[in-house]
Design a protein around this nucleic acid. Structure first.
Lengths: 229, 229
DNA sequence: TTGACATAGTGTATGTATGACACTATAAGT
DNA sequence: ACTTATAGTGTCATACATACACTATGTCAA
């Protein structure tokens, strides 16, 4: 050991709250535990950090290993350290949250054959450890951040209608928004590209499709404008 | 070891960005290192977490030990984990930031006789490790949070004038505010108690003193109002 | 082919918040 | 009493937020 220090070290893990959006609900991805403690209970995907990777890398690796998800939006959330949170021994966990497009990725059962499934964020089963607390924090963060950063697009397919965009905000913020005001506001921000294209295979008037123009967004941010919905 | 797991463990430390406010500047508290690496360089107060304390507790303990500060506002900031950030071995650090009232506490040299001193946040010396990055993050967080949470009061004495309050916002946000608009806004929030008392020993018209009414603030928050400056 | 249905798309009017702006009031010190 | 230093105060114009209801367009089925 290269320097004088003899404290015992807590184990260090990363856990990930993965959000997805379906037609009507915000979903959270959970893994069913096969081992004690909490065998059979649902839990957040996660695992131990390796010595040759950063926490971000560890979170991505675990996500890939346990759910098959790759290249998703991922951000650090909070580090939890309560003494008894793992009954086996002292574990400190760095929590992350991720946003994924439900269509893009089929969530695969983990390589080690554990069960993975999506649950509605407002109707979760009992979770292992203090994972319920972590999920609440992630939800709060998502709701807060959505107002002043355009992260919601990470949950939508690249092409979307304004109605769908509005639904996304309504689902996450848990309140209805006025259609005309929403459209006025979001179009005035001038960060959407009108694709001059409409939905296909719908049994009613088809909606125009838009794309989030990240280039334009960054430009505007640099010029000191601030997004807010 | 109570469960099967054979990964090596990174060392876990907490570091703390302590902010204070003097007449004209936002200050950061630093400790001068006496050991290699970075001997002689200034660094954030911090140290190793113990097995019987949470990260919050560790941050408070280190702050107390190294600077004599106790009972300050303290909040977790971010966990940094880059591979080479400590040249000796793998160290993961949970960064905190704290807000203290400069008048209240005389900062003492650390118990172990290291040097502690306040530096202007916009004119810091070269720091050890990646502490400059951590300080930038803390500053950003402070600026961001100040807009929608009344944390700035943690930097002011219990009784303060509106001018002083305005200065605090100007110093932290790094831009001038209009005096009349500021007063209109802050008084309309109705979270300050007019103490019916004025400054003493000033060579000009004395300013009324106010107090932040946290009770009233919490009440309003519950009733779903949102602070914003 | 036409009518029913489902959703897309659109504008105005009113209230509320924001931002720019300059002078008078009061206390201490000489 | 006058100088100095800071406290304290109001109006107007503009931008932004909110409330609100009807017409347009496409599919499908009778």
């Amino acid at each position: 050991m290269p320097f004088a220090y003899d404290y015992a070290r807590p184990a260090l893990t990363v856990d990930c709250v993965v959000f997805g959006l379906d037609e009507a609900d915000l979903k959270v991805l959970l893994i069913q535990r096969d081992l004690e403690p909490f065998a059979g209970r649902w839990a957040l995907p996660g695992g131990f950090i390796h010595m040759d990777e950063t926490l971000d890398q560890a979170a991505r690796r675990e996500l890939q290993e346990e759910t098959g998800l790759a290249k998703v939006f991922l951000e650090q959330l909070y580090t939890v350290s309560d003494i008894g949170r793992d009954p086996r021994e002292r574990v400190v966990t760095v929590a992350y949250y991720a946003l994924v497009r439900l269509g893009d990725h089929h969530v695969q059962a983990a390589t080690d054959a554990r069960n993975a499934a999506w649950f509605s964020a407002d109707d979760l089963p009992r979770l292992a450890f203090d994972h319920d607390v972590i999920v609440s924090m992630a939800l709060q963060r998502l709701q807060g951040k959505l107002r002043y950063q355009p992260i919601g697009f990470e949950l939508l397919p690249p092409k979307f209608s304004l109605t769908r965009l509005q639904q996304m905000y309504e689902i996450i913020l848990e309140r209805p928004l006025d259609k005309r005001n929403f459209r006025k506001k979001v179009l005035s921000l001038d960060i959407l590209e009108d694709l001059e294209e409409v939905e296909q295979d719908v049994a009613h008037r088809a909606a125009r499709l838009y794309r989030f123009d990240e280039r334009k967004y960054r430009q505007k941010i640099n010029d000191g404008f601030n997004f807010e919905l």
